[in-house]
Amino acid sequence: MNAFRLAGDMTHLLSVVVLLLKIHTIKSCAGISLKTQELYALVFAARYLDLFIHFISLYNTVMKLVFLASSFSIVWYMRRHKIVRRTYDKDHDTFRHHFLVLPCLALALLINERFTFREVMWAFSIYLEAVAILPQLVLLQRTRNIDNLTGQYVFFLGAYRVLYILNWIYRYFTEPHFVHWISWVAGIVQTLLYADFFYYYIMSWKNNVKLELPA
């Protein structure tokens, strides 16, 4: 495992920690899109089907379990926790996320590395992850006061994607047969979705003003 990959996984983990900190400690999920969180839970459930079948490393297994447990518990908190769910900004979180699922599934049936159940589900999870941030970005645009933790959460998520691209570039030159078109194309699309957010995030940080996305 190279340094980019490790740094990518760590920023991904950090984003989850930041979000759990907000939800668990501050008991607030204001500015967080439940739709995006539901999509992530589905992404991890579909991708980690091989968890108990195919062992890669202890690191891999533990990280998978962490992402599965955290994504489902975040959804639980936002839907069921009696204090947290009251802070959910339901009226602004209106993205029709169900309409993302079917096209991703159709695409996975058409474009996959191998036409098997697990490979189709893997491709599905990759496509769905690429667009899962959209409800969150839409909600951010509609949120007047984006708090620091929410901004940091999205920033770390985006940073994770950038680092994964650097990891692929590194692997492409160091590993002889490392070509995964599906994850590369989907990963680049996913990263580009953050470009606008990154611009405003860095500007707000540079100018020391509160983060706000233009509608």
Partner: peptide, 10 residues
């Protein structure tokens, strides 16, 4: 290529 695709990333 083998029968299983190696997905070693998260």
């Amino acid at each position: 290529r083998s029968d299983t695709v190696e997905h070693d990333e998260l």
